[in-house]
Design a protein around this nucleic acid. Structure first.
Length: 285
DNA sequence: AACGACTACAACCGCATTAAG
DNA sequence: ACTTAATGCGGTTGTAGTCGT
């Protein structure tokens, strides 16, 4: 369908600027023009190319869709992990995050975050910006993603996730065997008690954020130190204490049931746990 | 088959920042 | 130094496709 700017007698209306989805012809015109004249000066480009589009629209179409190096298709596990990691550091700085995922646009990453991550936070009935959700992501989901990446790498004989100007290795995220205290229902952001469960947890010490400069050579301030975190945990370097819930399922397996990392559906456990309390109840069964 | 709900993603909008004159 | 246009960014909306009933 075709949209037109309407109603106010503006220049835009007089020029009958088009809106809405781009046609194949428009795409071809834009690609052709940029191939001959280069990109930039988007307003004049739109006019000179004979496109009845705003410069903004042309720029967006080029950068997000037509550019030859735009990468399409499913977000890989490595990319997911990188997005989570960078978002935890920079927040909604989509453009900045996208710089470290070659071929991915800020728009795509933003869409991914909104459709997958925010959806899951909603299903868990917690705010995506809450410490509770961030900690769940950081100490549970990210380590599991890393494990799956490494498992995949081991299976295929590859060892790194090529993801930007630098590389992210799965081993960046490998934790030592440590004891982490899970949040209990009603604790809010301050988890004072709780049982101790062994897991390869993701900590500032084991993540690339622990360094004063990150793996991309960018100076960063470390994210909240684990001592600032509401979790109480202690390191169990020999890793001898395995906790097994009464249901007989190892802790890790229990989480895998709720967070299906297979087939990239690593956040599709929302129907399994309706909220954090449900998750907790399941783990205590 | 028809319908509605849901999902993913393309596109738009408004504002902030930067560059040019 | 100031103004204005261009560009970039993040939030939001629109829509086509898919799935379940």
């Amino acid at each position: 369908m075709e949209h037109h700017v309407k109603g106010d007698g503006s220049d835009e209306e007089l020029m009958e600027l088009r809106r809405g989805p781009w046609t194949v012809e428009e795409d071809f015109t834009l690609i052709n023009y940029i191939a001959h004249h280069g990109e930039g000066r988007w307003n004049s480009l739109a006019t000179c190319a004979g496109l009845r589009r705003t410069g903004k629209s042309c720029r967006l179409r080029w950068l997000n869709y037509l550019r030859p190096d735009v990468r399409r298709g499913n977000i890989t596990l490595e990319e997911q992990l990188l997005i989570l990691e960078l978002h935890s550091r920079w927040g909604n700085r989509w453009s900045k995050i996208a710089q470290h995922l070659p071929g991915r646009t800020d728009n795509e990453i933003k869409n991914y975050w909104r459709t997958r991550v925010q959806k899951h936070a909603k299903q868990l009935k917690c705010d995506v910006n809450s410490k509770q959700f961030k900690d769940t992501m950081r100490y549970i989901w990210m380590p599991r993603l890393a494990e799956r990446i490494q498992a995949g790498a081991a299976a295929t004989g590859t060892s790194t996730a090529t993801a930007n100007s630098g590389t992210v290795t799965a081993t960046n995220y490998q934790g030592s065997n440590q004891m982490v205290q899970l949040p209990q229902p009603g604790m809010g952001g301050n988890f004072g008690g709780g049982i101790k469960i062994k897991h390869n947890i993701y900590t500032p010490e084991t993540s690339c954020t622990a360094a004063s400069s990150d793996s991309f050579g960018t100076q960063v301030s470390p994210v909240s130190d684990v001592t600032d975190c509401c979790y109480n945990y202690h390191v169990n370097h020999n890793g001898t204490q395995d906790y097994c819930p009464p249901n007989g399922l190892p802790y890790q397996e229990s989480f895998d049931q709720g967070l299906d990392f297979n087939n990239n559906n690593w956040m599709d456990g929302g129907d399994f746990w309706k909220n954090v309390d449900d998750m907790w109840n399941f783990l205590q069964q």
